[in-house]
Amino acid sequence: MRITTIRRTVQFLSLGAMVAVPLLNHRGIAAVSGSFYSLNIGPVLFTDPLIAIQSLLATLRFEAVLLASALIPAGIALVLGRVFCSWVCPQNTLSELFDTLSNRLGLAHFFTLGSTPLIRYAVLAAILAATLLFGFPLASLLSAPGIISVQTARLIYEGTVGLELTLIGIIILTELFLVRRVWCNHLCPVGSMLGLFKCKKTMKVVLSEAENRLCIHCRECAKACQLGLNPIAGQLAPQCHNCGACIDACRKMTGERKPLFFRF
């Protein structure tokens, strides 16, 4: 089965959960509650590592439970890479949708940014420094998945949404007309923080060097990558969020040879 088929299912389910959780919570069924900032599944608490670190910096207090609850998401990133971004995050789902749309419409972008990881680490460092300096949880206001999930709940509970959604609008318009997929690729602090949890064994896309699995240089993998990465040039980390689109494109061309695959 295509990786993308499974991924679309997971994306769809996570969008559905974003609507179902507030609806169920209001009926008193609160086994699962929260948002992409912080989520309870039964007694287990999950917190976005960025938000946990932000709390530490903004308050200079060691909230053990909050920090511990970031360990599972960080652990998932350590093993599977930034799969939260590509498989779950609603901003990525939206951005993917609009990117597909703009390709169909043949919209051209004004700028391109290379695949340098410097921008994302500079942005993350600036946000964390400002959080420490002002004692204000700035990252919460810049977490696109957090904003989308809280505002969905707010729409269901209060019938209104807040101007926080302006950020989401700006991201979409920028990506449509100025720089392709710039948020997930270079700016998002949530993804940058998750990307810090990596090691040699973290799951990644690799190109086989075995003779019976040689790459045919069709370049379909690079064309399939919305983030503009090129798997055969080996320039993936830290932007690559393991969506698997390149692997699907590769299978289509090479069948059972599978030169491109996920490896731990």
């Binding site: 509650s33 900032y37 938000i51 709390s55 707010r154 509970y157």
Partner: peptide, 27 residues
């Protein structure tokens, strides 16, 4: 302290059976 500590996750609003807890907007 509240401004710095609250992570804006919205859980308290979800937990409120009376919808008394609202989420503040930019305005």
């Amino acid at each position: 302290d509240f401004i710095g500590r609250c992570i804006r996750c919205g859980k308290c609003a979800l937990a409120c059976p009376y919808r008394a807890i609202r989420v503040a907007g930019l305005l």
